[in-house]
């Protein structure tokens, strides 16, 4: 279909503009994030559901904790309820006795799960002061 006012150079320019727009101005996607907190060494887990979709797709289960050489060690499964493969990111924040985050590095770990698969996460607190942790889950949101 031809527009009566569009000459060939104009259409070329418009096409270039569209391509440039697609290529250069991709803004990062805002992703909702869910957190699961365990302030003390009990097994009571507080959930902060930012994304109901993520909460439906990923379930945290089989949470166990122990003290090993004076440090809190935690293990849990992240199970996918989806039949298809899924990618997500997780991050742990260690908390002290008062629930304050400890100054430990916080980076997002990329993870991939097959349909209905699970990932076992085992982590040891980097400092003996840690008495709880907070798990944050997010859809993939990488710098790309």
């Amino acid at each position: 279909m031809k527009h009566p006012e569009l000459s060939t150079p104009t259409r070329t320019l418009l096409g270039l503009a569209l391509l440039a727009g697609i290529g250069s101005c991709v803004t990062p996607r805002g992703t909702a994030q869910n957190t699961y907190s365990m302030p003390r060494e009990g097994v009571e887990v507080e959930q902060d559901i930012g994304s109901p979709g993520l909460a439906r797709d990923l379930v945290m289960e089989s949470i166990t904790t122990r003290r090993k050489d004076g440090r809190l060690q935690v293990a849990f499964d992240l199970r996918s309820t989806r039949a298809s493969d899924m990618a997500f990111e997780w991050s742990l924040i260690w908390l002290d006795d008062h629930g304050f985050p400890l100054p430990t590095p916080r980076n997002w770990n990329p993870a991939f799960l097959r349909g209905k698969g699970f990932l076992t996460v085992t982590r040891t607190a980097p400092t003996p002061e840690a008495t709880g942790f907070r798990l944050a889950l997010s859809r993939p949101d990488s710098v790309r």
Binding site: T10, C25, E89, P105, N107, W108, D141
Partner: peptide, 30 residues
């Protein structure tokens, strides 16, 4: 306004760039 005049402006606008600070712990797949 004819589209012939609008097209270069569109090209300039769409070829924008941006700089911002981000989370150092964020995953990177550049």
């Amino acid at each position: 306004m004819k589209l012939t005049r609008l097209a270069p402006a569109l090209l300039l606008l769409s070829a924008c760039s941006s700089v911002r600070y981000d989370d150092p712990g964020k995953t990177e797949t550049l």
